[in-house]
Design a protein around this nucleic acid. Structure first.
Lengths: 160, 160
DNA sequence: GCTCCAACGAAACAAACTTGCAAAACAGCC
DNA sequence: GGCTGTTTTGCAAGTTTGTTTCGTTGGAGC
C-alpha cells in the first residue's frame, strides 16, 4: 500500500514543533495564537505530523534521582567481531536492557556507546558482568561516570 | 520558606509514572483503570508529582531526520585546567548551544561528553571550530559518529 | 474564467480535566 | 480498644480542552 506521503514542513509546522518539544501540554488554542492559526488548524497539523512520524512520541520526563536511579554512566564498548549477525545480536541485547537508556552504534575507536541509568555502582557492576564479561564478543569497554548532568534532553534544533 | 515536602512514592505512583513516561497523552481515566484508582485520584497524584519535580517536563519527541538534522555525534572533551571557574564556564557554554542535545560532566579519561545533533558534517566541522578550537582550555576531543540510533530515550527504569 | 483541491476558521459537539464535598482508610494517642 | 485528626478516596457537577462538521477562501492547472 501507499505509505502516507510526507508533506514537507512549513514555517507553521516548525513553530508548532518547537512549542511541543518544549511542552506538549500547551493547549492547541494557545499554540494557535502563538503561530497565527486557529485551534483546528493546529490540531490537523499535529495529527498529520504524528501520522508521518515527525512526532515520534509524547512522553513525561522524570527525575531519575527521585526514582532512586541516581547514577548515569557512559560506556564505550568495543567488540571483537563485527559481522552483521554479531552486531545485530548486540543491538537487540542492549535495546532490551531497561537500564540502558540510550544505545548508539558508532564509528571511531569504539563500536557502541551506551547511556546507562542505575541506582548504585553495585548495580552497574552487576550489569557489566551480565552484559560484557559474559559476552565473548566484547573486547573492551570504558566507563565514564556522570558527575553532573549539565544538559539533558532530546530536543532537536529547529531552524526558522 | 518551606520547600514542598516530597512525599514518598508508592506503588500507585510508580505505575502511573511508568505509563506517563511511555505516553503522556494517556487519559487519566485509562490510567485509573490500569492502576486501580479513579481518574481524580490519578490527577491529584500527577499534580503532586509535578509540583515535587518528579515529573520534570512533558515533551514531544521529534524525528531529527524529518527536521533535516540527520547526524548524531558523540564527543569526548578533555580540558586543560579544571578549576571551578573554568568548568562552570565550559558548562554554560555547552548548555547554551542548541546543537548540543545533551552534556554531561564525567569522571574518567574525558571531562565532558556531548551528544550533538547537526544537519551535516560541515555543520559539525563549523561547530568544532567555534566550540573547541577557539577555546584555549580544550586539550583534546574525540569524535564518534552515530551510524545507528539503536535506542533513544530518557526513560528511567522503574522498579515495582 | 472555470474547476478542482487543499487548507482554513466558526461553531457545534464530545471528551477530558478539575473542583467541591462527603465518606472511607489510616496513624497517632489516650 | 476506641477516639480523633489527617489524608486520600470516589462521585458528581462544572469548566476547559480537544475534535468534528461544514461552509468558505485562496490557488494551481486547464
Amino acid at each position: 500500500m501507499s505509505r502516507p506521503a510526507k508533506s514537507p514542513l512549513d514555517a507553521f509546522d516548525h513553530k508548532i514543533l518547537a512549542i511541543l518539544q518544549r511542552d506538549n501540554t500547551t493547549p492547541q488554542r494557545t499554540i494557535g495564537e502563538a503561530v497565527g492559526l486557529s485551534a483546528p488548524a493546529v490540531q490537523r497539523r499535529i495529527k498529520r505530523m504524528t501520522e508521518d512520524g515527525v512526532i515520534r512520541a509524547n512522553v513525561a520526563v522524570l527525575d531519575s534521582a527521585a526514582l532512586g536511579q541516581s547514577i548515569t554512566i557512559f560506556v564505550e564498548v568495543e567488540v571483537i567481531s563485527e559481522t552483521a549477525k554479531q552486531i545485530e545480536q548486540a543491538k537487540s541485547q542492549f535495546a532490551a536492557a531497561p537500564e540502558i537508556q540510550q544505545c548508539y552504534y558508532v564509528t571511531g575507536e569504539a563500536d557502541f556507546i551506551l547511556v546507562i541509568v542505575v541506582p548504585s555502582m553495585a548495580d552497574y557492576e552487576a550489569l557489566t558482568r551480565r552484559l560484557f564479561f559474559s559476552n565473548n564478543n566484547v573486547k573492551r569497554f570504558r566507563t565514564f561516570v556522570a558527575m553532573d548532568r549539565v544538559k539533558v534532553g532530546l530536543s532537536v534544533p529547529i531552524e526558522r
